[in-house]
């Protein structure tokens, strides 16, 4: 069976149209990015507000006891916050595709639209490709838009530190351009596979959302100082997710066929 991109694009077109008319889902998708942008801006603002506050130095020393006496504690903390928040920010490209793909695959079963769809010439692979695209594209657009807002917000608030813009920096650009697509692919792949096995979108969403927990756990570890996140750490994380993506792709090709998709609702 040949892969016909026209049919995959038809699925993409339909899902995208459907998403645009789904205010509940759009709202759900907007909530997380909003938090992920607004919270760090507020945190940065509290550090910048009074750079001579002696408490700042105390907090900074907690993170790094070797901090030189003449270092600017405020700036140190802002940089530290942005580094930690980076991991948190990457939850977004995982989470948004989970929301969309659960709806679009298990949702088709739930609303009984999958059977007419599978009775058309579209192949299971084209279906998954179209649906994945319809979830990856919005997820990355949202992530990138949120990133632009974050950069503008942080730079405006941190301007008084007076050493030029703090964002974007190389790490963040690497994260947004390389890690985010890998993470999005991961979230989508998990959601699609789970959606294929369960009957309801809500169930698929909940199970798939569980996979975000380890990621949040890692970030929590970072903030608490157990993990020392840095470029190497994130590069390793990227490599691991890349391997997981390949595994998911392999599993999807093997596990998703017409009969399995249709039989799982009896």
């Amino acid at each position: 069976m040949a892969f016909r991109s026209r049919r995959a694009l038809a699925v993409f077109w339909k899902d995208f149209l459907d998403l645009r008319r789904n205010p509940v889902l759009l709202l759900g998708m907007a909530a997380l990015p909003l938090v992920l942008v607004v919270v760090p801006i507020i945190v940065v603002w509290t550090y910048v507000r009074d750079p001579n506050d002696s408490n700042l130095r105390v907090i900074a020393l907690y993170y790094d006891p070797t901090l030189p006496l003449n270092a600017n504690a405020g700036r140190f903390l802002v940089e530290r916050t942005l580094l930690d928040w980076f991991g948190m920010f990457l939850v977004m490209p995982v989470f948004v595709p989970i929301l969309i793909s659960s709806q679009s695959v298990a949702g088709e079963k739930e609303r009984r639209t999958l059977e007419p769809l599978l009775a058309s010439p579209v192949t299971a692979m084209e279906l998954v490709a179209g649906k994945s695209l319809a979830s990856l594209v919005p997820a990355l657009i949202i992530t990138w838009m949120a990133f632009v807002l974050l950069c503008v917000g942080v730079d405006v608030v941190a301007w008084p530190l007076g050493q030029g813009p703090m964002l974007p920096n190389t790490l963040w650009l690497f994260g947004i351009l390389v890690l985010a697509p890998l993470f999005a692919f991961f979230g989508n792949g998990v959601a699609v596979l789970i959606s294929a096995r369960v009957a309801e979108a809500r169930t698929a969403q909940q199970i798939a959302a569980l996979i975000v927990l380890p990621l949040v756990g890692l970030v929590a570890g970072q903030v608490a100082g157990f993990l020392h996140a840095g470029p190497v750490y994130y590069a390793v994380q990227g490599g691991v997710v890349l391997l997981l993506d390949v595994a998911l792709l392999w599993a999807s090709v093997r596990l998703l066929d017409r009969e399995r998709l249709i039989s799982r609702w009896g």
Binding site: K14, L17, R21, T113, E115, A119
Partner: peptide
């Protein structure tokens, strides 16, 4: 599947479309 048309038990329309 190119030569058959199937009307399923449920109409299965995309309601927002």
């Amino acid at each position: 599947r190119r030569v058959v048309g199937l009307l399923t038990e449920q109409p299965g329309l995309y309601e927002r479309l």
